[in-house]
Amino acid sequence: MNNDLEIYFTKKSAPIILEAFGKSINGDGYIIDSESKELILTPENEEIHISKFGMLKKGSEIFVKNDLASIINHVEGNY
């Protein structure tokens, strides 16, 4: 496997990524587990609106927002 590989999704393909991992979006636009219907939380214990979905990282599954604080934590290896 190419360790340099980067994969990006867009607004259109974000739901595809979610569905591949058994997640979906509830009526209010927040990411939920498709089976349990529980809200998916970030490492900061925040709910994620689909418009704020920034990353899906390894470490079981870590859902991260697309805001600056999350980007800083990602780059600095805090997740």
Binding site: M1, L5, E6, I7, Y8, T10, L56, K58, N66
Partner: peptide, 15 residues
């Protein structure tokens, strides 16, 4: 999922 299992994460293109 295979990419993910090989440690490749996914990012929003806009960021």
């Amino acid at each position: 999922r295979n990419f993910f299992d090989s440690n490749v994460g996914f990012k929003d293109l806009s960021i």
